[in-house]
């Protein structure tokens, strides 16, 4: 237990970096994902093809490989704003197709009849989306989006292996120093992650139940 208390500042620093990565990559991935999702359902076929290809490619690439590219290869191309920024870029790119898919599945989850009714009373593509489909889709999108954020929280740990000092990096350093107290250290780090992920999961579950009743 003393190993945890002694190293608490390290853990807190790691936790701060984890949260930083989470917020930056979360916002970035939301913006990028929104663009990709809009392209994916747009009437213009070249955008659809591009968005589909992007989604499939990035989604099937391991995160480790993406972060490896950011941490080792981007500096070789003489782009090196620092490992934290590089990891944030990698996580943003990696998470964006999942955001896009969550948004799209929300749009797909709205019953066809809704869109048909909106179209048949003469609303345009934009009006159908803004007044009929999106208000319903957004409710349904929230739980899967929260799940994407939860996954992102856990994924930030991979950045710890690429020179970013976040929770996983803190765990590695402290377990190196204190090989005798590995279990309490790792449980403490796990607790930090669970502090973020479990409440988010509970919120997602509650919203989901509410939405289920509404429908």
């Amino acid at each position: 237990m003393d190993a945890v208390i002694d190293n608490l500042p390290l853990f807190l620093e790691g936790f701060r970096n984890t949260l930083g990565l989470l917020i930056i990559a979360g916002v970035g991935a939301s913006v990028l994902g929104l663009i990709v999702a809009a392209m994916r359902i747009s009437p213009i076929s070249s955008f659809r093809v591009f968005a589909t290809a992007y989604t499939e490619l990035v989604r099937n690439t391991p995160l480790t490989l993406v972060l490896f590219f950011c941490a080792y290869l981007l500096p070789l191309l003489e782009y090196s704003p620092g490992y934290f920024q590089l990891a944030a870029i990698g996580l943003t790119v990696y998470t964006s197709p999942f955001v896009a898919e969550a948004l799209r599945s929300g749009v797909n989850g709205v019953h066809v009849g809704q869109a048909e009714a909106a179209r048949s009373v003469g609303l345009t593509f934009g009006q159908t989306l803004t007044f009929v489909v999106m208000p319903q889709a957004i409710r349904m999108v929230v739980p899967p989006l929260i799940n994407v954020i939860i996954a992102l929280t856990k994924n930030t740990s991979v950045a710890g292996a690429f020179f970013v000092f976040e929770l996983f990096g803190a765990a590695r350093r402290v377990t190196n120093d204190r090989g005798d107290a590995v279990i309490p250290i790792l449980l403490a780090v796990a607790a930090f992650y669970l502090v973020v992920t479990i409440p988010l999961g509970l919120i997602a579950g509650r919203i989901e139940k509410k939405v289920a009743v509404l429908r």
Binding site: S105, A204, A212
Partner: peptide, 15 residues
């Protein structure tokens, strides 16, 4: 509409 990395795929599917 399956989001394989969401960690909680059934949420989408249940809908």
């Amino acid at each position: 509409p399956v989001d394989p990395h969401s960690g909680d795929p059934y949420a989408v599917d249940a809908q």
